[in-house]
Design a protein around this nucleic acid. Structure first.
Lengths: 250, 250
DNA sequence: AACGAGTTGTTCGATAATCGAACACAAGTT
DNA sequence: AACTTGTGTTCGATTATCGAACAACTCGTT
């Protein structure tokens, strides 16, 4: 179904760098003939996913529906939110939930306290999985071959001086974190940022996501994280798929 | 381009009610032959927008990228967020930003304080525009014919005893709110909820979105809202498209 | 074990949609 | 006035899509 692929490619071509495009620009961006690009944009416009004023095409808010349809299918997220709020209040730290997609961590729920990261994190934000605590926790649930495949498919440019960039080192770290049941990542994503994460596991033992608490390195030590944060974080994560709150296993 | 339309229809068929579907269910939901549905789902899977395990198909986090591509094209949102945070801190109330899509208001940014609404509002949440303060403010920027068209395309079931359900009454209210430059909505969406909104207008005079402050009816009166909240709300909204922060008019 | 009901997977010729080159047109530029 | 760069539109050739039909599989039930 090449037409479908082309249409989605055009949708995906809109970007922060290219918020609006003319017909020709879109054709060039996705490598289509102008005639084809025009047909694609016309149907996307008719379906309401793209807006046209003048010669400029831009995304319509309509496509948010698609994205949030996904969030609404993950119904553990809305169960997690109140638990996360409680956790954040007790610990006085930001609490987030994320899922793994490829080599990215995608935030799906967030309870912020003070803003500690320079880039504002919100639902939908993507961060490199190998350098984030939630990413490592979720990667640990994959089999070894899969971990290596993803390791090899991503560039491990150091984001801070503390970033682990050695593939074997990362692999070992992921396995070790999986063994111990949690992951603490120190300043690998951004200086001064320290976070601890555990997996959100469903009844079948599959990792559906991860939960973390993040803080500033000057505020909490690694040991405090393990001794104070970890127990409650584990309890919270475990409650999400507690049999008490039965659900039709989405 | 019927194929593209079918593909997007299938994507849109996934829902909170139907988080996973078999091939046949998808075919039935979108009214396609099973052969076609299978082709669609196969290409969607190959493109990474859909995941298959066993006979069950489900949405992949990949499609979040599409939705957030839109958010990232609206670059006034990230300029608005720090301003909204400041506003929320000063007023001690939740502050939200939304855009209008059809007859829905879609939240695109949010700074929550205490949770006052029963349904948790987050980015991506949709509410009926005619019964929300932000919706009325944005509807006021449309011409009369367009307002009527949208009025007629939606069912105005009362959500609370205070909801305005008379079309003419709603129309008049929207025009009046547009005249005065803001909208206060009292308990029409939910009991105890009072909110005030103003439009976010760009340099060309177009309404790009709306900003609101919401509170509980017992905490702030209508007059206090107008006297205390409105001036700062207007100032904040005006700052978003201030020429100081120049941008390539997305 | 045989059966029917319900499902997915796959094939193939007929059909219908898509393709792109070519041209018309508009607007701004040299 | 010719040129550049863009969109809009047509049309026959090409190609992808369609759906009926059949194979294969999994469950319960008899």
């Amino acid at each position: 179904m090449t037409t479908l692929a082309k249409g989605l490619a055009v949708l995906g071509a809109f970007d922060k760098k290219r918020p609006t495009m003319t017909l020709s620009q879109a054709a060039q961006a996705v490598d289509l003939s102008r005639a084809t690009a025009r047909r694609v944009l016309r149907t996307l416009t008719k379906l309401g996913y793209v807006e046209q004023n003048g010669t400029q095409f831009s995304l319509s808010p309509r496509i948010l529906q698609l994205g949030f349809a996904f969030l609404s299918t993950q119904n553990w997220i809305e169960r997690a939110l109140p638990l996360m709020r409680g956790l954040s209040e007790r610990m006085h730290e930001s609490c987030s939930a994320a899922i793994l997609e490829g080599t990215d961590v995608v935030y799906v729920a967030r309870v912020p306290t003070a803003r500690i990261m320079s880039v504002a994190i919100s639902v939908g934000t993507r961060l490199p999985a190998f350098h984030s605590s939630m990413g490592r926790v979720m990667l640990g649930f994959l089999d070894e071959a899969e971990i290596w495949r993803r390791l090899n498919s991503v560039s491990l440019a150091p984001l801070t001086p503390s970033s682990i960039t050695d593939p074997q080192g990362l692999f070992d770290r992921i396995r070790a974190d999986h063994e111990q049941g949690f992951s603490i990542v120190d300043e690998e994503l951004e200086r001064g940022l320290r976070s601890i994460a555990v997996a959100v596991v469903d009844q079948t033992g599959e990792a559906r996501g991860a939960l973390n608490l993040s803080t500033h390195t000057t505020r909490t030590t690694r040991n405090e994280m393990r001794d104070l944060f970890l127990p409650m974080l584990k309890t919270t994560a475990a409650q999400i798929f507690m049999p008490a709150s039965a659900e039709p296993s989405s």
